[in-house]
Design a protein around this nucleic acid. Structure first.
Lengths: 182, 182
DNA sequence: TCCTTTTATGCAATTAGTTGCATCTTTATA
DNA sequence: TATAAAGATGCAACTAATTGCATAAAAGGA
């Protein structure tokens, strides 16, 4: 479970409120560890109780906005956790199950719907990553931290491209196997 | 949630008991939808209650072994589900969070441990997939169903190779960024 | 024959994440 | 100045999966 450490990382990059975190998650760390604002608020409470962050009320802001920042104990904890190793996350992909089901049922069961839907999603996501690449990591010298962030982005780019290749390949195979369907 | 449909698929390929399913999951569908025997037994109960499978006591076997087989209603349900589309599963990878944390903390925090650990795991998994490829899908004509199963395996092969490439690239970058560490 | 091991099935507690809703505060608008 | 909208925080119920343990029946060995 890495949500607490994802939050510590994000707050270390830039102290902010729970809502801000939720928004930033949507376009950076959240690509690799999605979280809703509900989860984030609950977790921030735990982090503060553990003495890893502290919060101060932000005057002149909307609602009851609180600003969170990482304490030394939190930074220590993050360092400890970074040096840990664990197994790759188990992968669960319904589309692979669908493909195998199509094989078991005999072709023509309609897995193309899912393949086409995902193809569209992966193309959108790839375009988003390419925009970020163009905007933040192209045409200038990168600091060490930026090189690492770019590396992470490259993982996203490679993954999306691989998914796109796979969907296209699968659709081509299905086309070849059931020429009467189209 | 695709466990019920993964079970229907596997039972359609070959009727068997819950324990057999658990074992088969370990080396086929389970690569893309892992499940423990506890989950499987509970789900089989639901499938039977829904009238999608039926079970018969297997005489002359150990324990209280029951053999499950898919009923027509179950096959209908599987067909219906195969034609559905849904979003790609959200990806959650602690190692990416670690890399970003390393960037925020300044290099030297020790993310190499996780990279090396995963590199080993992905190499093992790749070797396993390559064995299956060699044994089941090489040097002969493949039926339509087999071509689909091979396609799924190829996704696994590509994914593992991509992960390996990424770990190697990340380790090389870290090496370059902190030459004093090694 | 008793006792241990193996095979097979299953329950219960916990954890992490999702979804839907509730509340409070400020800002904009009619 | 009411009132609505938007911003910010949070609770509660539910779901899916993990982990640890319990039970039952047959096989094999002493």
């Amino acid at each position: 479970m890495s949500l607490p450490h994802a939050l510590l990382t994000s707050l270390l990059e830039q102290p902010c409120s729970g809502m801000d975190l939720a928004r930033r998650f949507g376009r950076s760390i959240g690509f690799f560890w999605p979280a809703t604002h509900q989860q984030i608020y609950k977790e921030l409470g735990k982090l503060e109780a553990a003495g890893w962050v502290r919060s101060t009320a932000e005057e002149g802001a909307r609602g009851r906005k609180r600003c969170y920042e990482v304490l030394p104990a939190g930074e220590q904890e993050l360092k400890r956790w970074v040096a840990e190793a664990d197994d790759p996350p188990p992968l669960r992909d319904a589309m692979m199950v669908r493909l195998r089901a199509e094989a078991a049922l005999g072709t023509g069961a309609g897995v193309e719907n899912d393949l086409l839907h995902r193809l569209a999603r992966h193309r959108t996501q790839l375009a988003l990553y390419e925009d970020i690449e163009q905007r933040d990591f192209t045409g200038r010298e990168l600091s060490a931290a930026e090189q690492l962030q770019y590396l992470i982005l490259q993982s996203g780019l490679a993954t999306e491209r691989e998914h796109i290749r796979f969907c296209e390949k699968a659709l081509a195979l299905l086309e070849a196997l059931e020429p009467a369907e189209s």
